[in-house]
Amino acid sequence: MLKIAKYTILDITRSKVLIAYTILLALICISIFMADADVTKGLVSITTVVMIIVPLVSIVYATTYYYDAYEFTELLVSQPISRKSILMGQFLGISGSILAAFLVGVCVPVALFAFSDTGITIMVTGSLLSLSFISLAFLASTLTRDKAKGIGLALMIWFYCSIIFDGLVLLFLYTFADYPLEKAMILLTSLNPIDLARILILLQLDISALMGYTGALYQQFFGNGWGVVFTIFMQLVWIAIPMAFSLKVFRKKDL
């Protein structure tokens, strides 16, 4: 498994896409910090970027890579290696590469310009977000046979998570505004990895506003670390579950 990961990383580092992604992230971060002396404002802008670009690139890149490496996967399957090791190895390899890009492109500038609780939260959530979208990319790729369909599905997942889902939630809130929706809202949020990441950052940036919300559950959720534990746990679930499914599919998949 680790060998596959190693060769996947070696393969990716030879391509220029990931380097371009790293440079793009770094440029965005540095220009944001340069443009404004207010560090908190910079972090807010970076959050917006992290919430959009990081999932998009992670899912599209991982899906494309999966299909580009399809023949290689075929070759590996004919070798004495378990399918689980092959897929997990590729997952680790891609994750390692994308995380490295995120580390250099976002974490380093944030650590240099705005090392704070909020900064650390952005680093952690951004990393977890990358991982969950790579995991989703594997699910999308193993479920589809065709590269175009796979990338289409990946884009749909991204579009759904970043825009449509929240729109539906808003609609849901309007429709059921008269009902107590506390639990429902927390549940709904956990159905979208981007929302989870966002909430984790909100807990840093907007805790003052969040504390204004009435209701014991929210008070507990926002007030005493419980929310942080819950969201991070759910983000981990969002990494584990799609990958577990994709492993299950891949085990039975014809190559």
């Binding site: 929240d166 709904l188 966002r198 909430i199 909100l202």
Partner: peptide
């Protein structure tokens, strides 16, 4: 203004849809 009507939408703060 949305928050005025539906306080629960606090959970959507800083989301893409809200920014939009």
């Amino acid at each position: 203004q949305i928050m005025e009507q539906i306080p629960q939408s606090v959970m959507l703060m800083r989301s893409f849809i809200v920014n939009l």
